[in-house]
Design a protein around this nucleic acid. Structure first.
Lengths: 152, 152
DNA sequence: TTCCTTGCAAACGATTTGCATTGGA
DNA sequence: TCCAATGCAAATCGTTTGCAAGGAA
């Protein structure tokens, strides 16, 4: 998923968010943010490690990821294997859902129609309320076979 | 979530499915199936271990869980912490979604209206097709605060 | 009896942390 | 300068596996 605004804005927003927390916008953090900005779905720590060509050692990478996550800059989730995957938080990229290939495990971002999204939000609030929950959001994973895996 | 049919039917179906695979319906497997049948959401291995009062040692429990999962009797997913949680597969319980408390991590099963479900299925197929995916299913997590966590 | 299943202990792999060193504001 | 951030190595923790003993068909 691509940043919703100009490239510079993304880094400016991230820098500001980090500054609020007295955290520095260091090389590793910048590398991670830039890499995730070009990704089209959530990436694992080892995927990032490889994608950054080993520039950031794994232990430092994990520390970087947890700082960015705690600052609300990244969102973490877990794929079917239980491996953590990270992506830019929705206030930076816009609300979206995931297309998950049940065969190869690939995950891609997708957006759904605004009206469908509005309906979902209403539906979700109603269902939650029925159980005494106050809804704060929702997550939809569309499971299927990706183009490559469709042909077996 | 409660079994959709008579209690006996659940165990009969599980036994049959295991038999097809030349696997036995042993004590541990029966314990796990019974416990999950009374649960109202997916449970972790350690939750089961505790729930079964240590009757099944963890290593055996993990083996039990993977046999049942591979037989299609259980579905595995991962919670926000990345811990695996198990529940009876949907062909045994019916299609449903999850209500997830963003504060305490509790997960409860919920069903949504049949019409909403039908709409979702259509929407999902459309979105998937647009990306060259063939949709096989969908998963919705409703995030919110549970009754206990609502009051902080 | 025949294998599948179990249980213990050791092995694994993803993630985390202690500690001395480095680097950014 | 000064404290946050880094990198290495060791420690965790959930989960998996080797192997000998036990149990269901």
């Amino acid at each position: 998923m691509t940043n919703a605004t100009r490239p510079d804005d993304l880094e400016r927003q991230v820098a500001a968010r980090l500054a609020e927390r007295d955290a520095r916008f260091t090389q590793s953090r910048r590398h991670v943010v830039r890499f995730l900005d070009t990704a089209d779905g959530p990436i694992s720590a080892s995927g990032l490690h490889a994608g950054l060509d080993g520039a950031v050692p794994l232990s430092s990478l994990y520390r970087t990821l947890s700082v960015l996550e705690e600052a609300g800059i990244l969102a973490r989730e877990h794929d079917a294997d239980g491996t953590a995957r990270y992506e830019l938080a929705e206030w930076l990229t816009g609300h979206h859902h995931h297309l998950v290939c049940v065969r190869c495990g690939a995950i891609e971002d997708v957006e759904i129609d605004a009206e469908a999204e509005t309906e979902m939000t209403g539906l979700v609030a109603r269902i939650a309320a029925r159980r005494g929950f106050s809804a704060t959001g929702h997550r939809i994973d569309i499971e299927g076979r990706c183009p490559a895996c469709r042909s077996q």
